[in-house]
Design a binder for these strands. Structure first.
Lengths: 335, 335
DNA sequence: CGATGCGCTGCGAACGTTTGCAGCGGCCGT
DNA sequence: ACGGCCGCTGCAAACGTTCGCAGCGCATCG
């Protein structure tokens, strides 16, 4: 293994100079730096991370904790985050907690000590999670806790847009199929929806209980939606919408003929199912990127100057084929 | 920060004993071990990873390199791998290379030094990749290189099953929509398909060129497939199949009425699109799990006893609604 | 011309752990 | 009863890096 000592010997300098030439090039004379650099190249020297971390106390790497990598939502966030971390020249360790609060805490406890900070995406037990990474810099995505830096999507605006879209189509009774009980996004969406509904006295919202944020959740919700008498439904995410559509179909009901459906997230599944889903788009890559940016900023800040403002990413309505006026077969042309 | 020294002092032993009580409990007297353990608990001691790595030369963590986390195929493999790593009590660092051979090599170079080994999933430039992690243990998934341990799916058997299924339905001219040029899986599938076709002199296979392994690839292939005169098509993966179906639909063609489609991988999209795809299932979670198992085994083996055999996971045909006899409207009941 | 300062470099001490080696009893076999 | 062995423990030396401190030479200023 080639170490600073070897490089130092070849370059004819001390190991301190080698270290500095690499970490803080501006603090070393040009000629010396060049000598060191060519020695590094010649020997193929690569600094030993562990030693650097041990001595310096920081790792130059960050962590990302997500509930489920197989969920296209989190996969997209993870891609964005990793992309940005790469641009920052730092590593990013991705951990999947399988939607399990216990695993979440455990994963964080394992991850935290070897990182300079962690992005916590849609934590399932935020309090425990934050406790687990005791004091280490953290950025929350789609969650908020008092003074903790965060990044979020504008769920309120999104819900308003979805509701106004449906109302414009003529829907007056709209169901909401909610996500996991502990989900902060779900709470925000409910709140946003209620608020939007309040602005119109001719629209009624029916909130339906907690469902798993996967297809099964949507399937499970379908019969409740039908029974609710709603003519349109907004779901916690696209996967739920897909499950819902699927179950309706087996009951002989058609989307959008019998029910209009609005998904959430515009993950790529939204456009590949039949019918393509009207959905709320949030730029997930960007969400991940922004989170990493904030984390890097937070971690390298002098504890004093933490900017407590929360970047809010726009949520935009994407209209596809899963929404149309209620009971309005004539508009689409007769079969 | 609480260190071994603090624990040692509280437990009334030396730091060596503390270290041993944690790493190799069987080498320490029961009474001593208990004292140490309660001291650990009382102080909330957590070993400093960096120090351990530095001294011991191994990190107790592995790496997983995948081309694209947003691809449900790799997401599933990653989940399996992470799950298994957790069970082994080791960490797993997941890196997404964006299908880019340069990033792949770079990522590996960054990853390798801080891990005990790497799982390389569908590498885009295997030779460079292996060189990049010079000498470190590695397990290949869906790829093979001379004596490197690997895990793979039985593409040959899968292709045979797909072809026999289509032939049994009455298809005689079958197209194959291939994946990326550099894809090993693609080469295996072509070979398997050719071999299977050779067993029957009444079946003809039309191989179509390289396409991106996403929806766009499928969309791009559709017109070629139609022009080829095939009545059935097998695609590189489910996403390609979905794109293909989509493009056919905009041309007014229906699946399976006008063309039967078999996907690959049985990723969850296969069951959620319309029509649900007949596809080749491989247990991706298990693929990831097995890869980690092999890696752990390889890494902890005494260089001499590496088992060079390659576990081959079964590939199973899942029949859904995207395949049926050619031009056989009557079989399905008239509209 | 001497003092002051600054830019650059080297020395050496950490950082917290693992592990080879040796010592110390006690037990067993002869 | 004594030698040897074995199970357990402690000592101390690494592992490769970063960084505070100090020294050195040179230029600038008084």
């Amino acid at each position: 293994m080639v170490t600073v000592h070897d490089v130092a010997r070849l370059a004819g300098v001390s190991i301190s100079t080698v270290s500095r030439a690499i970490a803080t090039p501006e603090k070393v004379a040009d000629a010396t730096r060049d000598r060191v650099q060519s020695a590094v190249r010649e020997l193929g020297y690569r600094p030993n991370r562990a030693a650097a971390v041990l001595r310096a106390g920081r790792s130059g790497a960050y962590g990302l904790v997500v509930p489920d990598l197989a969920n296209p939502y989190f996969a997209a966030v993870a891609k964005g985050a990793q992309e940005r971390a790469r641009e920052h020249g730092t590593g990013l360790f991705i951990v999947d907690t399988d939607e399990d609060p216990d695993l979440e805490a455990e994963a964080i406890r394992a991850l935290a000590p070897q990182t300079d900070g962690v992005v916590l995406c849609s934590p399932r037990a935020a309090a425990r999670a934050i406790e687990a990474l005791d004091g280490r810099p953290v950025v929350l995505v789609n969650h908020d806790v008092d003074g903790v830096p965060a990044v979020e999507a504008d769920h309120r605006g999104g819900m308003r847009r979805a509701l106004e879209h449906l109302r414009a189509l003529g829907h007056r009774r709209i169901a909401y199929v909610g996500g996991p009980e502990r989900s902060w996004s779900d709470r925000r969406r409910r709140a946003g929806l209620a608020e939007a509904a309040n602005r119109y006295d001719d629209v009624e919202v029916v909130e339906l209980g907690a469902f798993r944020p996967q297809m099964e959740g949507g399937q499970a919700s379908a019969d409740l939606v039908v029974a609710s008498g709603a003519t349109a439904v907004i779901t916690f995410n696209d996967l739920v919408a897909v499950g819902l559509v699927d179950r309706l179909r087996t009951r002989g009901l058609d989307v959008p003929r019998d029910l209009s459906v609005v998904g959430c997230d515009d993950s790529y599944v939204a456009s590949l199912v039949t019918p393509p889903l009207t959905t709320l788009r949030v730029d997930l890559r960007r969400l991940g990127r922004t989170a990493v940016d904030r984390l890097v900023a937070t971690a390298s800040a002098t504890a004093s100057d933490v900017t407590p403002d929360v970047p809010v990413l726009d949520v935009e309505l994407v209209v596809r084929s899963s929404t149309r006026p209620p009971g309005a077969d004539h508009l689409e042309g007769a079969p």
